[in-house]
Design a protein around this nucleic acid. Sequence first.
DNA 1: CGAACTGTTGAATAAGGTCAAACCAGGTGG
DNA 2: CCACCTGGTTTGACCTTATTCAACAGTTCG
Lengths: 254, 254
Amino acid sequence: MKLVAANPCPRHEPGAPPHGLTKALPQDCAHCAVREIAVCTALSAPELERLSAIAVTRYFATGETLFRAEDAAAMVGTVIRGTIKTYKLLADGRQQIVGFLFPGDFVGSPTQETHHVFAEALTPIELCVFPFSAVQRLIREMPNLERRLLAVAHEDLDLAQDWMLLLGRKTAQERLATFLLLLVNKASIRGIHGGAVELPMNRGEIADYLGLTIETVSRQFSKLKRAGLIRVDDSHAVTIKQPDRLAEIAEGTA
Amino acid sequence: MKLVAANPCPRHEPGAPPHGLTKALPQDCAHCAVREIAVCTALSAPELERLSAIAVTRYFATGETLFRAEDAAAMVGTVIRGTIKTYKLLADGRQQIVGFLFPGDFVGSPTQETHHVFAEALTPIELCVFPFSAVQRLIREMPNLERRLLAVAHEDLDLAQDWMLLLGRKTAQERLATFLLLLVNKASIRGIHGGAVELPMNRGEIADYLGLTIETVSRQFSKLKRAGLIRVDDSHAVTIKQPDRLAEIAEGTA
DNA sequence: CGAACTGTTGAATAAGGTCAAACCAGGTGG
DNA sequence: CCACCTGGTTTGACCTTATTCAACAGTTCG
């Protein structure tokens, strides 16, 4: 079941934006929910103070587009709450999702003048945003921030290359296994452990991430279920019953 | 016909390393062939001076491995001459090439302690190398360099994501068309224009970059040839006869 | 010349895609 | 409360694309 666009953060925002409208308000970095895992970790207390001054929180409703490829880069920021998909399109509508962004993840490129991907909210989103113009200046003045952004960029590059291996060389079965384990990993970074995996995206979005069709994804879910490796709690949650065997499948060692 | 491992750079290296052996010697940045297009562009004259002091030129023979995934990162550097492939492997030997590096391209990650890809020389290589330990320090002391590395990382990320779109969603025909146009593009950055495209890699390596098999790549070459879009001069060179139509195929608009 | 490669082409096969129908849960409204 | 609709999902039957397997052609090199 998909989350409804309820008040996303009662503490910060008693009068929440109704009807999925976007609203901005100043950010309080000291009490940030993703303080420990976002790029801001790299900053000193006074630097964080400065950041607070220019950061604003923005909300996006499920299905809302944050930005489009070719758009002038207007903002960068950090996901506080919710899940975002970033994707590329071909002229005839074929879609490839290039990343799912979870709380703590950085959104947008701090160096490129225009966006190169589309970004869309899969759930109600709380986003900590800096104007693009400010980022250039911040980077110059906060070497810690720049160093962290460089490290994050290389982590993202490595992940993208892992995904090239998946898209170019793995079978449908291996792709789904890899995907489920990636979600487990991503969740554990956010401190969420245990066998249950939340799937904020639907089958079509999983397909567009794995380079498959909806039907093939569904069939592979059924196959893993029949083999007893996972339990499909509902269409948006699975439990990993045999992580080791799933990992073997993911790496082609099964 | 593949280039033989002859003396790769007579001017700098009169007594070239015989039998494909690696040899190191100090670098002269002022006369560097890729000065204009490498990361070093960002540096001031005194900075370049400092860089000269610690950079060394190393040579690799065709087929030689520069580094392996999981290896501790020993070096980063810039390609001066030749072509390198970087790739990921699955346990059973399936290979996905994640990039071809040409003169001016940066090799290795300045932030990661271990390599995440394999790198192998496709032709004799001349490489301008800095010890990994020095890079950390250099970045701290040369903000221009760090800013440029951040920009390069994001360009690479964008390219990787374009390739995810190719691997996940394009047909064999579209993949080969995209690949040929990428080579044209890369060559034009190095100042090489005109319809002729050099292919330093063999069919197997093209296949491993495009997520296809050798046979499919060969068939698609034949098909583009029959359609009059390209001329296959020999197995390592093609001429683009109809760039516009090739671009339409590459983007799925044909 | 013949061996070893690399590349091309053809025929058979399989993995995943397409098309179509059934299923299922959650909401809506009588 | 229940019938009905709706969207996402699952499953089945069939088809297409690219892979696999195999034979053959060009080159290079000993």
